[in-house]
């Protein structure tokens, strides 16, 4: 079995350092397995958040050799043990708690600001009916596991922490797009998308789509359509005249 040189961040909000550990990996293992081996054998106090180990809970987000990834979905076979140390860091965008664990409560605070789904009145028989083709788009967005890797990689808040109060981030543009496209929903969230969520800050560099473990087309299917809807309402004088003529 190859022995990997793991370079793992150890520290808390007051400071820290990378420490190197030699860890043996077995065939088929992922980074999270190796971190667990490390925790069991050499660093019992190593803090790491994890849960399902199947890429569905979104807990074990970290940065591996500088790339935001889920530790449980990153196979050791991607790496060459002879090529140098594998660096495992906590997510850069969020405040560090300890070692590989960050405080992602920023995201939960934003989630609270998004008005919940509010359906129109039910049909005469008391039910709601939707065709599959009307909810296909939203179902892609519901694959989100809230790992917050897209939030972590987004340079708007990663490199400019001062933008955090005015920018919701890709995960919440996905949520806003899902609700805005819903055939039954009645709430207009475009003002929120434009002002409080700051969709104008996004410059479509698509890093969020690149790191999404669920391969949601965040930029093409959520952010750009949302930008276009905001443009319909705020930046399109032709549509504005049309709405005025229709009395809307």
């Amino acid at each position: 079995m190859p022995t990997f040189n793991m370079r793992v961040f150890r520290g808390n909000k007051d400071g820290g350092e990378y420490r190197e550990y030699a860890v043996e990996a077995e065939e088929g293992q992922v980074i999270l397995d190796v971190i667990h081996t490390l925790q069991a054998t050499q660093a019992q106090d190593l803090a790491v958040r994890w849960n399902c180990k199947a890429g569905k809970c979104g807990s074990c987000s970290a940065e591996i050799n500088g790339k935001p990834r889920l530790m449980c979905m990153t196979r050791m076979s991607l790496f060459d043990a002879a090529a140098g140390a594998i660096t495992v860091s906590p997510m850069k965008t969020f405040p560090l708690i300890k070692d590989l664990v960050t405080d992602v409560s920023f995201n939960y605070e934003i989630a609270k600001k998004i008005p919940a789904f509010k359906p129109r009145a039910p049909e005469a028989d008391g039910t709601y009916r939707m065709m599959q083709e009307d909810i296909d788009r939203g179902q892609e967005f519901r694959k989100c596991i809230e790992c917050f890797l897209c939030q972590d990689v987004c340079h708007v808040i990663r490199d400019h922490a001062e933008n955090q109060p005015k920018f919701a981030g890709p995960r919440f543009f996905v949520r806003l797009a899902e609700l805005d496209m819903h055939p039954l929903d009645t709430v207009d969230r475009l003002e929120l998308a434009r002002y409080d969520a700051g969709i104008g800050y996004c410059n479509i560099t698509k890093c969020c789509s690149e790191v999404c473990p669920e391969e949601i087309h965040i930029t093409d299917n959520a952010i750009i359509p949302l930008k276009e809807r905001v443009a319909d309402k705020y930046y399109d004088p032709i549509r504005w005249i049309g709405r005025k003529l229709k009395g809307k």
């Binding site: 370079r7 820290g16 350092e17 990378y18 420490r19 190197e20 050499q42 660093a43």
Partner: peptide, 8 residues
């Protein structure tokens, strides 16, 4: 054996 290396 753990060894310290430069910052985060």
């Amino acid at each position: 054996m753990a060894q310290a290396v430069p910052a985060a």
